[in-house]
Computed example of a mutant assay.
Amino acid sequence: MPGNRTRGQRAGLTRQSVLEAALALADREGLKALSMRRLGAELGVEAMTLYHHVASKDALLDGLVEQVFAEVAPPRFQAASWRADLRDYADALLTALLAHPHVVPLVVSRPATTPRNLQAMENALASLRTAGFPLDRALDVLYAISGFVVGHVAAEADPARRDDRRTATDHLHPLLDLDPDEFPLLTAAARTERPRSGADSRFDFALEAMLAGFDAARRTES
């Protein structure tokens, strides 16, 4: 009955709307600006009202990680196209993380173990097993790809830059300033980068190497 609704429900809030507002605030002003009081003010309610939807500040932070991963389509890997499917998943996760650079430290430090994320992992494991991976290796593949993408973004992403992909040679600038007499190989490598270079190139190279390794392991263990 209407009279039994909580204050948060009367305010038109849901857990999802709270998390969306929290993510928008973190994107705009960084994690230091995110408090229950500030978030409540953003939503036009008292801070205590938020606890009807998120049990604690930790639960709110876990929800932010969930929100970022939720932007990636739930991974479904088909037997005939699992390599392309994994590549698409890695690219989608990369894009989602780069869209929310202030939240990347949370993704690095907090396991994505909300029920929503766990169900996505469960579904991904099922489809990887269908693609021919033993169950334990399927989990290894999922962790390896996710960990690789998160680690790459943590090393490369700059919260001050909002574009989806990095400028090709940004990461090489320190190498270009080195003394070529002291570091001949580093400076030569930096100066002979191919047109599509830098962080994008390294990401794609490493991802393709990982996929080739997964395929070799799958063939050996199947």
Rank of each mutant, 00 (worst) to 15 (best):
A47N: 12
V149R: 00
A112P: 00
S56C: 10
A11Y: 04
E42H: 09
R202P: 08
V72F: 06
D27Q: 14
L139G: 03
G3E: 01
Y89W: 12
R191C: 02
A22M: 04
A26Q: 11
T169E: 07
G12L: 05
T192K: 09
G63V: 01
R194M: 06
H102C: 07
A216I: 12
A47P: 09
L94F: 14
D200T: 01
H52V: 00
A70K: 15
D91K: 08
T49L: 08
Q16V: 08
L142P: 01
K57Q: 02
L128M: 08
R37E: 07
A154F: 13
R218I: 14
D163Y: 04
R38K: 00
D85V: 02
R110T: 14
S146Q: 10
D177G: 05
H53L: 07
P184I: 11
T130H: 07
A99W: 14
A216L: 14
G213L: 12
L128Q: 04
G3Y: 04
P195A: 01
E71W: 00
M1I: 00
L106V: 09
P134D: 13
A55S: 09
Q16F: 00
D140V: 05
G8R: 07
F205Q: 15
T49A: 10
L60Y: 12
D85L: 00
L97M: 03
L139M: 06
V107L: 11
D158K: 15
H102G: 10
D158H: 15
A47K: 13
R10G: 02
G63C: 03
D158P: 13
Q16C: 03
G44Q: 03
F77E: 00
